[in-house]
């Protein structure tokens, strides 16, 4: 693959972890600016705050209000160094453990506290 277009091929792409599990999409990309060095794509951000920021200030304010209302103190946003990228195709593979990411916290919480406690919730395929 020659040139990779950030907006066409990278931003908003489906992310999978090292087990090919879907772990969200690239909600934001951060550039790193360092004195004396050219800027480089440094960080992949996954999370609702990043998505809200893209829509506008009002959405960010709504997002923050909801989280405050729910009494969330923990961070629900994943920031992953771009070096973790293993493959860029239809999906982008990251060399990370999906279950440990902050942006997967809700998914893990739902799975362990609710879904798997309901009969038929746990296991592999139906």
């Amino acid at each position: 693959m020659g040139a990779v277009h950030l907006s066409h091929d990278v931003i908003d792409s489906q992310l999978v972890d090292r087990h090919q599990e879907k772990i969200g999409r690239i909600d934001e990309l951060l550039l790193e600016l360092e004195e004396g060095k050219p800027p480089r794509v440094a960080t992949i951000v996954i999370g609702g705050v990043a998505r809200a920021r893209r829509v506008g200030r009002w959405m960010l304010a709504c997002h923050r209000a909801v989280h405050a209302l729910l009494g969330h103190r923990e961070e629900y946003e994943s920031r992953i160094p771009f070096e973790a990228v293993r493959r860029i195709a239809d999906t982008i593979e990251l060399d990370v453990e999906g279950d440990t990411l902050p942006s997967m916290r809700l998914d893990r919480w739902l799975a362990t506290h609710i879904v798997c406690r309901i009969p038929g919730g746990s296991g592999e395929r139906k």
Binding site: Q14, I23, L106, D107, L110, G121, K126
Partner: peptide, 18 residues
């Protein structure tokens, strides 16, 4: 970008099943 499939057990795609 969540996991999804009606063929997976709900624990495998908790947000989809929820």
């Amino acid at each position: 970008g969540w996991n999804w499939s009606e063929n997976l057990k709900p624990g495998k795609d908790a947000r989809f099943a929820t």
